[in-house]
Design a protein around this nucleic acid. Structure first.
Lengths: 212, 212
DNA sequence: TACTTGTTTTGACAAGTGACAAATTTCATT
DNA sequence: AATGAAATTTGTCACTTGTCAAAACAAGTA
């Protein structure tokens, strides 16, 4: 079940401290999602964050723990989009509900491209990070999609394809956003523009559901 | 245009030399596709290849050149699947041609999951590697898909969606194979099994084309 | 004031990185 | 067997990596 976040754990001792943590997290999210875990050094993160050396270790204990904190924030951001979408979908007629949620998921993926980037990045290997991501976030999301899928199939709103393929098509549809740089080089189009996001949402919603 | 490969450049001086190069390349492909460029060290490659230290530098000059050689072999492997598919598709009735090629592409992606892995990996950033991949391989492939798309649209075999979205849906459909580890953790299914490959090929072909 | 607590700064270190160069081996041809 | 080029092995370099530890600083409390 997708639900709203629990508040950040640490009590914000001081204003400045919170700012340091925040800048580190934002730098970490940007760099991890662009260069991967191994490709990003703690010093690079601190430099990009504009803070002194070793502050990451002090505030988060280790690179591993810091990475987890980064993914937490990213997933939180996804929840910030998906939670309200679920709430709103309750008021939508069943015939449109699946389509509505698919479109919202696509828009969320575009708003938080770091999420898909990290997922694609870690999904290929066998690291402790993959296990952690699946346990913490992916499993929960998968179950939600599975429920949605079952319901949609009962209502004959989803074509006759297996759940696994449905799921990875939906997830894989975010690849255009996570490969925005390549997309620009290839087509000259900005994958993260409003027009492209709409086009992608329209396309997936059309293909993954059955027209009335 | 997708065409058959040019032969490997180097004249195979001796049997053993060729074996060393081959083992290095195979190890490099496996490791680069699982851990990314920065996440893989030359010593790790040499260890996995079972050869002595520094032999990679000797045979390939540098890590950069070696990486290029690895991607060359991977793309060559993709061509080994796509080339014959194109040839065969000439004999297929136009109404089935697009569907046939889509299915073949999906099967190729499953047979060479390293290709999609590397593409997803590099597509997110802005490295010299991305530029090189696009110049060397991706552009050529994109043009091929674009031609196929135009033809399919004229014949009313492809739904009314933009080319860019069509392309990234097709490419993104390989994500299930490149995230095989995650898929196993999540669903218990082997994404690279014959059954799953078939299911994925069927699904994409069905969704991206219009039924007669 | 002195003391405590949380945070920042600086110094250091062992392990690992890619690359270079010289020493050594291998092996087909004389 | 002798030669010479290709291939392998070993040694080393300057640099980066993550982390630890101690020093310096700030701000509040007794």
């Amino acid at each position: 079940m997708i639900r709203q976040a629990a508040a950040e754990i640490a009590s914000p001792k001081s204003e400045k401290t919170e700012k340091t943590r925040d800048q580190l997290l934002e730098a970490g999210i940007a760099l991890f999602s662009q260069q991967g875990y191994e490709g990003t050094s703690t010093r690079q993160i601190e430099t990009q964050a504009g803070v002194q050396r070793n502050l990451m270790t002090y505030h988060f204990g280790s690179k591993e723990e810091f990475w987890k904190a980064c993914t937490e924030r990213v997933y939180e951001r996804m929840r910030g989009f998906l939670g309200p979408a679920f709430t709103q979908s309750k008021d939508i007629e069943p015939g449109e509900r699946v389509r509505f949620l698919i479109r919202r998921y696509v828009r969320a993926s575009a708003a938080v491209p770091e999420f898909a980037r990290i997922m694609f990045d870690e999904g290929r290997g066998n690291s402790w990070r993959l296990k952690w991501l699946v346990d913490q976030y992916t499993r929960e999301f998968y179950e939600t999609v599975a429920d949605l899928f079952d319901d949609g199939r009962k209502r004959h709103m989803i074509p006759d394809i297996p759940l696994t393929n449905f799921y990875y098509l939906l997830v894989g549809s975010a690849s255009i956003f996570s490969m925005a740089t390549e997309c620009d080089l290839l087509t000259g189009e900005d994958a993260l523009s409003e027009a492209m996001i709409d086009a992608q949402a329209d396309t997936i919603a059309k293909l993954l559901t059955i027209a009335d």
